[in-house]
Design a protein around this nucleic acid. Sequence first.
DNA 1: ATGAAAGCGCTAACAC
DNA 2: GTGTTAGCGCTTTCAT
Lengths: 377, 377
Amino acid sequence: MRLRRRGWPVRGDEATPVPGEGQQEQQVTTPTVYDVADRAGVSIATVSRVYRNPDSVKAKTRERVLAVARELGYVPSGSARGLASRSTGVLGLCFPDYTDPETETAAGDDDDAQVLYADQVIRGMERAARRHGYALLISASLQGGAEQLIGGMAGQVDGFAVLARTVSTEDLDVYSRRLPVVMLAGPREIDRLDHVEVANFDGQRELTRHLVEVHGLTRLAFVGGPEDSPDAEARFQGYQAACRDAGLPAGDEPDLRRAMTRADGREAVQQLAFRPGGLPQGLLFANDQMAVGAMEELISRGVRIPTDVAVTGFDGIPLGRMVRPSLTTVRQPMRRLGETAVELLLRRLADRDRAPESVMLPVSLALRASCGCGDAE
Amino acid sequence: MRLRRRGWPVRGDEATPVPGEGQQEQQVTTPTVYDVADRAGVSIATVSRVYRNPDSVKAKTRERVLAVARELGYVPSGSARGLASRSTGVLGLCFPDYTDPETETAAGDDDDAQVLYADQVIRGMERAARRHGYALLISASLQGGAEQLIGGMAGQVDGFAVLARTVSTEDLDVYSRRLPVVMLAGPREIDRLDHVEVANFDGQRELTRHLVEVHGLTRLAFVGGPEDSPDAEARFQGYQAACRDAGLPAGDEPDLRRAMTRADGREAVQQLAFRPGGLPQGLLFANDQMAVGAMEELISRGVRIPTDVAVTGFDGIPLGRMVRPSLTTVRQPMRRLGETAVELLLRRLADRDRAPESVMLPVSLALRASCGCGDAE
DNA sequence: ATGAAAGCGCTAACAC
DNA sequence: GTGTTAGCGCTTTCAT
């Protein structure tokens, strides 16, 4: 026999003589399978079946159970279900808190300028997950501290995706021993993980080549990201390769490294302007946010884009289309990133022993006004 | 004594003599508190404490437990935790699958044009939730069917927000008896719910007044949404009120009702053009998507905006800024919607007996080119 | 087709 | 500070 929680009268053949079904309106505890079973005159197993495998229950019984459930306001507990069945029907996504602090404040009401990378990945994952009957649990890692949250998430999902540089490799190692984890848009980090990456190298090389071959630029500069950002590094290498191919000089290092925010872009312009030789003809940034910041600064200094200097970014954030001149960039297939993550996760869920898989997603150029392409727009 | 699952050797003073700690590398089952406790030589309660309330455990013990946990790859099970503690640390959000099917296909690579309403709400909720130590579970309701998912969500969160018209009132009634639910951007529907709405009426009235007073338009038409969309209705009523105030004619019904997609906007233009008197001077739509569709159609017919016809929307989606002419609209504070939802949810979690609360969020006009304001942009 | 019973992994008293 | 123990609400054999 099973006791009711919170000092409730015990059920069935216990001591205390209970006044029967008298108190139906009194919603005191949240109803459980037991309550429904009791009231419907069936066993808890049958109640469970009604939800998990309706066809295994006689239609009439099923209706009765469902009616009682509705009446009682019964909703199956996801936790209990998860515990008993060892699966939650939820996939997770961890992403860094990308917010450019400046955009945050500067934009004010203009919420919309700010939709970045992560939103698209979320969107892609949500839809793919839903198609397969999963929900999506999302959580940004507040940088520095509270890995608490991602730990919490790890316990609550059947598997999850991590945007690069969100979770420490060490933690990742622990989590990925317990459940499927897929790395998104970075290096795989841990061999056993599945992994989706984006053609950073190819994209940047192609873009650089465009500047050289189509626009005939020869004096270029590349503003990279932190050394520990593999995306930024791969982009730089693409730039490098294109330069070499074209017989142009290209150092072993980006001309400048920055943290990749808008403010960094502005600063970069300042620095570059005072170097011997001044500004280059083409200014390539490792991401769109920096490029946008740079354009702001350049324009405020009276520099004409693209006439005096061509500017390019990488990512394809919406903001890049809204600025004037519109920003030439390399568009990442962010939604597809999310979709691919779901597919990999499900495949691994279906077969834990598959060999780890690595998918590379292609990128495409968005040639717009800031390099001299596109119309006025 | 407690048996191990899956036919594992029993622990401790049981029959089978077990070969001690010999098999450490053999990760066969996912480790639990028991495994950690055993190996660290403490009780499961202590392991639990290390995670829930670290300070209640002696530093040395804590380190030992943590070390073992890391070694074993232990991650606390969210389900078990949720079941035992009756709370999950997760908040939920249900939203309709807003996708404009046309945008979907037409946009092709242009992922970004498509960031709509829901993304912003998600963003706002995610951040607010995270600040309070919660994660966010999201799930769009595939229209017609599979309320399965939202049922699943309901069982897995401590409370959730619902974007209007996503979940049937009937289901909502059941869920909201079990956990806190807040209605977003629609009517409250159920009295006991908390509720956040947006000043649809005020916004549309102000926008209409702008058209009349600033631009001097007198022949207006309003294209509304379905009758059962309270937002669309409130907007229409705001329009109506402004017309009356200005002494202009305004029917009891929108000049046209449509389902609010882009295609609907185009069709609306077709219909209106062939009405006696032809197109009005000002064409107001109940949302941005329709307005954008309408502009496309008008432009393709050689109609000049805003010279011949002024067009306005409602929502403030990013797309509205990208189209030419840029769309005059009423901007909803979508991020704040999400934040407010979290606040209400948490307040109710803290005190289930609070009186239900209803918050109205202000909107603001975005006066752009399609009404004759703003610059060329 | 339905019931009985044994856990799933953890938390929360309550002892010591 | 740490251990014991009784559930949390469900799924799942195994019988019937």
